[in-house]
Design a protein around this nucleic acid. Sequence first.
RNA 1: GCGAGAGUGGCGGAACUGGCAGACGCGCGAGACUUAGGAUCUCGUGGGCAACCGUGGGGGUUCAAGUCCCCCCUCUCGCACCA
Length: 811
Amino acid sequence: MSKGYDHRAIEAKWQAYWEEHRPFTATDDPGKPKFYCLDMFPYPSGSGLHVGHLEGYTATDIVSRYKRMRGFNVLHPMGWDAFGLPAEQYAVKTGIHPAVTTAQNIATFKRQMKRVGLSYDWEREISTTDPDYYRWTQWIFLKLFERGLAYVAEVPVNWCPALGTVLANEEIVDGKSEVGGFDVVRKPMRQWVLKITAYADRLLEDLKLVEWPASTLEMQKNWIGRSIGAEVDFQLADTRGALRIFTTRPDTLFGATYMVLAPEHPLVDAITSAAQKAAVDAYREATARKSDLQRQELDKDKTGVFTGGYAVNPVNGERLPVWIADYVLMSYGTGAIMAVPAHDERDWAFARTYRLPIREVIAGGNVSEAAFVETERGTVVNSATADGSFSINGLKPAEAIPTITEWLAKQGKGVKAVNYKLRDWLFARQRYWGEPFPINWVDGESRPLPEEQLPLVLPETNNFKPSGTGESPLANLGDWLATTDPATGKPARRETNTMPQWAGSCWYYLRFIDPKNATRLVDPGKERYWMPVDLYVGGSEHAVLHLLYSRFWHKVLCDIGVVSTPEPFKKLVHQGIVLGEDNQKMSKSRGNVVNPDDMMDQFGADAVRLYEMFMGPLEAMKPWSTRGVEGITRFLERVWRLMVTDEGRLSDTVVASAPSLDQQRLLHQTIKKVTEDIEELRFNTAISQMMVFTNEMTKAGQRSRAVLEPFVLLLSPFAPHVSEELWALLGHPASVSQQPWPVFDPALTVSDRLTIPVQVNGKLRSKVEVGADAPRELVERLAREQIGEWLQGKEPKKVIYVDKKLMNFVV
RNA sequence: GCGAGAGUGGCGGAACUGGCAGACGCGCGAGACUUAGGAUCUCGUGGGCAACCGUGGGGGUUCAAGUCCCCCCUCUCGCACCA
C-alpha cells in the first residue's frame, strides 16, 4: 500500500520533540483559567493497553489539547492503580516479586501511551504502590480511624481450606476455587470496616451537585437505597422483651398476620418453644451452610419455620405467630419484619406456602389473587383501634403512613426511621500486594501508628504463599510482625491485613495536583486552584463502587479541611465498550482482540486515534472495524495531499492569495462545528465535518493558506503528529499545540443562498433557490410557479412558511 | 420482577428548540489514469418499473413526526427477597 505520508517517521519525530520540549507540563498559574481533565487510571495488567482504554484516553487527550489552545491551564495526568491480585497470583506461581512485574507492566503501558501521542504531564506520574504515595493512603486511614469511621468486625470471608487462603469473589467460579476447583466455605475473620453508612445521606444528597450520566446517578441512588418508614415494637407474648421491626408501610400495621425473624436474629432462642426447637435449629443450620448466592436465588420457593413463639401487635393486641425465614436478612433494618401478606409480595408468597391468613387492609386490589402494593391508589380499611380512639380508615395509603407514624410515636410504640441498603465497606484483604494498615495490636487492642512513622512500608520477602491460617502472607514475616507499641513500649503485633485496591484509587486525583509534596497530601492553595476535576472519563463498570468510595473519602477529607469542594468529579462520562469486529465482546478465547500496537504499526497513531473517535458516540458500545481504520487513513492521506507533494514538499497549490467566499464559509462552518462538537464530546461528527472540508478542498485547484492553516489547527487535537508536520511544512515554528484555537465569524457560517424545500400537504414536491434575505412573498411566488400542477389551479387552503426553512401548501 | 437506556440503508452512524430522513465513513457499482491495481481520482448507491413506500410494531396530535402523546415488541446495562 503506497503511503501519502510516512507515519512512522513523523510520529517518532514529534514524540521526540514533545519529550524534549515538554509542552504539556501543567504549571500552577493562578492567572490562567484551569481545566482538570482526568482519565480513570488503569491497573497495569500484563496484557498491555487495550483499544477500549484508548477510546477514553483519546477523548480526554483531544479535550486537553483543545483546552490548552483555548488558553486554559490544563492538568492532564496519568498514573497507575498498581496494587492488585494478578501480580500477586503471578508471584505465588513464579516467585517473582509483584513489584518487578508491576514495574514491567507500567513500562509497557507508558510506552504504548506515548506512542499514541497522549499529552500527559508525565512529571506528575504516580503509582499507588509507591511508598511516597501510599504513605498518604495510610494517613487518610488514620484520619478515618481517629474519627471512628474505621472499626474492626468479624466478617465472613471466602475461605478455601485446600488452598489455605481467602479468595476474592472473582476467584470463585460456581462455588469452587478458580484454581484447582476446591470447596470454598464462609469463615468469619477479623476485618477492618469503614463506616460509609455514616455518609449515606450526604452521598445521596450531593448527587445533585454533579453532571453525571443519568444511569450512573440512578445506580448510586439505588445502591444507597434510602427508604423511610417506621420502627415499631411488638411485645413478646409469653416472654419478657420486645421485637423491633422496620417497615416502610406502617399504614398496613392492622394487616399483619405473622412475624418473621432472620434466622440469625439474636431473639430466636428466647422466642422458640421447646416443641419447635429441633426444627428451628435444623433450619438455622441449613441457612448457615448456604452461601450468599444460594440464599439470593430468587426463583426458589420461600422457606421458613414456626418458632412456636408469639408477639403482640401494638395496634390491636393480636397474638401473631413468629417465624424464622431466610427471606428476611439480618443485615437490613432490624432483621425482623411484620408480615402483611395482603400488601407485600414476599409475605404473600410465604403466607400462601404455609397457609397463613391474608387480611386486606387496603381496598383496591384482589388480595386473594395477588398482593396489592400500591400506595397512590386504594383506600385504607379495617384499620382502627378497638376502642375507636384511632383510625386511618378511608385514607389513601400515602396519607395514612405519616398519620399512623405520628400516632405510634405519641403512643411510644414506634418511631419514624430511615434505612439504607448501603452497607459499611469491608476494607481489608488477606493479601500481600496492598497497602499495610498503620495499626499495631497491643493487648488485643488496635493502636494507630503515629503519623510521623508513615509510611509503614510493605516488607520485602520472596515468599508470597498464603500463611495457611487465612491471614495474609505478611503473617509469615516474623521479624516484621513483631514490634513495640510506640506509646507504651509494650510488645505489639502488626496488622496483617492489607487494604483493598479501591484504597489507592480513592484519592489519586488529589495527588496529581501536588505529586511530590513531602509534608502534606496536597497543598491547600493548589487544591483550591485545581479542584474539582472538570472532566472525568472512565468505564461504567466503576459507576458504583470506585465512584462511591471516592466520594466518601472526599467528603471525609472535606470535613477535616484537606479539600475545599463537596464533590471531587464535576462532569463524568463513561466511554462505551469497544466490541470485536464480530460484534462480540473482545476476549482472548474468541480471538477477536484488537491490539493497539498492531494497528499503530499498520496505520499509525493518528489514524488509530481518529478511528477510535470516528466509530460512533463516545458513550456507545460499538464494534471495531479495521476497514474503518483504512477509511480514516485515506482521510489523513487526503489531508496530506491537500498541501504536500509526492516528494514531501509544500505543494504549489497552496497559495498566499485570499480564499474564495465559499472556501471561507466552509472554513468557518468547520471551525464552528468542530469547536462545538469538542465541547460536547461529539468527536465523530467533528471528524465528519473535517472530512467534508477536505473533500471540498480536494476539488479546488488552489488552496489558500488562510483556510488551510486554521484547518491544520482544528485537526491537531485529533491527529497531533501529522498536524505538527503539516504546520512545519507550512513554514511555522513548532509547536502546533501552542497555537491559539481558530475563531469563527458567525457571519461567515451562514450562506447567502438558501434552498427552500416546497411541500404540498407536507410532501416534498420541489425546491426553490433564493437569496438569504428573500422575503416570504418572493419565495411564495417562486414556489407557486414550481408546483402549479400540484395545485391544479385551486387556491390552497393554507400556506405555511417557516422563515429560511420551508414552504408548505395545504390543499 | 424492578430501574435506566436504546431500536434509523448491506454495515458503523448523522439529523439544532417538530420543518428536505440517511451527513460522514465502510461496503458495493460504473468510469478515468495505468503493464498492473487491494493505489489514486471522478460519478453513483434506502426500497420499488411506477404511482408511491420507508426511522422496531400499532394507534394518536399536527399543515408537517425519527423527534411529541398512548399501547405493544425486542435488545443492552444495572439491581436482584433491602421489608
